[in-house]
């Protein structure tokens, strides 16, 4: 498996009760790349991520991660991935440390390994001093950082980040950016979705824009902007609105 094809998404489809949510999506992600997946509500981003991360059955097509097929070897794929869902998938009654240790142990780590990895991750997201406090008492931004820290418990090679900065203050957001860039510099591959275009512009080497369950554009932010004028003056939001239109999207 070449580094250029660390993740291969091939003609991926998902049909829910006759409705096609994802319709023949294909792209590849290089090892060590932050790959952006953008699109309006209902474009099929989260469905695509859920299929790629083995939590939603694939209707057609396939995804390979580090050479393992999601359809045929989901357990092998899970060993390579970490998932930070859009929702705060946390146990609010437990402390940050307990949350991380629990998910780490579910990943197969021993108690000692999980505790060590948890403290390392909490330091990474700047929550060491709050490790033993219940998550219920955390601010939105802190919860987001715990959400991210859990996804890193198995030191994944591929990290799925589904809108990781929703509802957080600029300080927490910048902390999350710094963390993601640090992970990339350490060789981690990241699939990143967001509605904030400036985030994608700052973090992603390449971006796929989805609409109606399909990929309608895929390139570097610079090249996407260059399609519509001077890349120094055109914003990614301009590109996004030109490609997906101004019609309101209410679907989740």
């Amino acid at each position: 498996m070449a580094d250029a094809e660390f993740v291969v998404v091939r003609d991926l489809r998902k049909v829910f009760n006759g409705h096609t949510a994802v319709d023949g999506v294909s792209f590849t992600i290089e090892r060590g790349e932050i790959f952006g997946l953008l699109g309006p509500n209902g474009a099929g981003k989260t469905t695509t991520i859920r299929m790629m991360s083995t939590t939603l059955p694939i209707s057609a097509g396939d995804v390979t991660v580090a050479g393992h097929s999601v359809r045929r070897k989901p357990a092998a794929v899970r060993r390579h991935i970490g998932v930070c869902p859009q929702e705060l998938a946390l146990y609010l009654e437990l402390t940050a440390l307990d949350n991380l240790v629990f998910f780490g142990r579910m990943r197969g780590l021993s108690r000692r390994e999980a505790a060590a990895q948890a403290m390392e991750n909490l330091e990474l997201v700047g929550l060491t001093d709050r490790a033993r406090q219940p998550v219920a008492k955390f601010s939105g931004g802190m919860k987001r950082r715990v959400n991210l820290a859990i996804a890193l418990m198995n030191r994944p090679e591929l990290l799925f980040l589904d809108e990781p900065t929703v509802g957080v203050d600029p300080q927490s957001r910048n902390h999350i950016f710094d963390t993601i860039e640090g992970l990339r510099d350490g060789g981690m591959t990241v699939l990143y979705t967001t509605h904030y275009m400036e985030e994608a512009d700052r973090l992603c080497r390449r971006i796929a824009i989805m609409d109606g369950g399909r990929v309608i554009a895929l390139d570097t932010p610079h090249n996407l902007k260059a399609r519509y004028g001077d890349p120094e003056r055109v914003t990614l939001e301009d590109v996004f609105l030109r490609l997906t239109g101004r019609r309101l999207r209410d679907a989740g």
């Binding site: 939590t55 991935i81 998938a89 197969g108």
Partner: peptide, 13 residues
């Protein structure tokens, strides 16, 4: 509803 179940599945449960 809180998606911890989904996270458990992604964690090989």
């Amino acid at each position: 509803e809180s998606h911890t179940l989904e996270r458990l599945v992604a964690s090989s449960a």
